[in-house]
Design a protein around this nucleic acid. Structure first.
Lengths: 230, 230
DNA sequence: CCATTCTACCGTACTTAGTACGATTCGGCT
DNA sequence: AGCCGAATCGTACTAAGTACGGTAGAATGG
């Protein structure tokens, strides 16, 4: 019965790419918890069971969108000729920004043990830069472990950052709305008051500072002075 | 009808502490996905709805067990008199070990924005050590952000580490069982072959190396030479 | 041009999970 | 003994993952 609108004509046909891309959009819009087979199917204009013809199960979707996030990190000017230090810095910022755009990806990283191609390319590229900068195999292993840890950990800090709104907790005992309990955590309170809660403070700036400190130390440690970078 | 065994006599009475402690055990035993209200209740020897009289909802349970993990980090010799560097190192190792024992906690960190008391004590203590070591407020902020990022990020790397079993993938095109595709990722392959996959290699050693490098750089950066530590 | 077959999509239904709501039980008080 | 509040439980509703089988339209072969 060819009566009424034909929905299949206007639908761009389901593919694995479309499924994963849409899944990423849903996760970005409402958090990873809002990404369900049903919400995804609705967004795709399709019935739930249809997506199972393009992905094995939900785990595969999660693997897929994590790899999409890594793929996003590759979308920045490569500049393979620049100093190794600049290359590393650019990559680190690209990684941080991707994880900031998709904070749910951080929580997924821990449970995923089968890296996708973009994830592997990401690792490969970091190692390549360091090796071509003259680092030994051992030193490259140390440096990449250190750098990856810092970048990834910083993203976690940023995602979990509770400051900014003093939270919605009605402050149990006293009626003060101080962001931190000054008596129980004096140093934390001092830090918050004198540094973090200042008007122009941006936690993101700690990223460049930490990165510079690490890169400076790596440079010293590996090249012992002969090969001045920045 | 007082016939049969009286189950309430032998049960130690439910409390918030018992609920959270048991939730942590369940998560440790079967992963965070296996922690459901029902599995938790079964482990407690109680019906599902009973736990809701001690915690608001599942989110509160997750908040609670994350804080328990942080509390676990406090169970190490304090030695508040030692050199600041040693204190930081001990704390870092305690943190890493706690996150290794409870890898699911890492994935939870990202989504939790209301830190518990143990979490706050943990922050407070790090800041205290640095401040009492003579770091300025600003430098302490930089140092603690850097250190926390590294420790936390390292834990993520460790949890997500795919190496060790070459995975169960039947290697798509070629029949080789090489852990990494040598042609597509030459540097990664070299690194794996010449370093990671060596008999005595332990990724955990990268932790101490990275930590030492960071602490050395912090020391230099902050004290400019006058206050030689280790 | 029709029959077969393959693929993509869908309908139904089963299972598990979170939890609202009200009933019930129990320990301690007067 | 009788009462009260807190702890526990029974029932049931909703949502999510997905197994299983059906169907319709495109591709293929005669």
């Amino acid at each position: 019965m060819p009566v009424g609108s034909d929905p299949t004509a206007t639908r761009p046909r389901l593919t694995r790419e479309r499924v994963l891309g849409c899944a990423l959009d849903v996760a970005d819009a409402g958090g990873i918890a809002s990404l369900t087979i049903r919400s995804l199917a609705a967004e795709l204009g399709v019935k739930p069971m249809s997506v199972y013809h393009h992905v094995a199960n939900k785990e595969a979707i999660l693997d897929g969108i994590v790899d999409l996030v890594f793929a996003e990190m590759e979308l920045f000017p490569r500049d393979a000729d620049g100093a190794w230090r600049d290359q590393i810095v650019r990559r680190a910022h690209a990684t941080r920004h991707a994880l900031r755009r998709h904070p749910w990806a951080i929580g997924l990283l821990e449970s995923r043990s089968t890296p996708g191609p973009a994830t592997l390319r990401h690792q490969e590229e970091t190692i390549r830069i360091l090796r071509e900068a003259g680092f030994s195999v051992e030193m490259t292993a140390h440096a990449s472990a250190l750098l990856d840890s810092f970048v990834c950990g910083f993203a976690v800090q940023e995602a979990a950052r509770p400051f900014g709104v003093t939270s919605t907790r009605p402050s149990d005992e006293r009626g003060d709305s101080s962001p931190v309990d000054t008596e129980a955590y004096p140093h934390l309170a001092e830090m918050a008051e004198k540094h973090m809660l200042r008007p122009g403070y941006d936690f993101g700036e700690e990223f460049q500072l930490g990165l510079d400190l690490i890169l400076g130390a790596l440079n010293r440690s590996a090249h012992a002075g002969h090969l001045a970078p920045s």
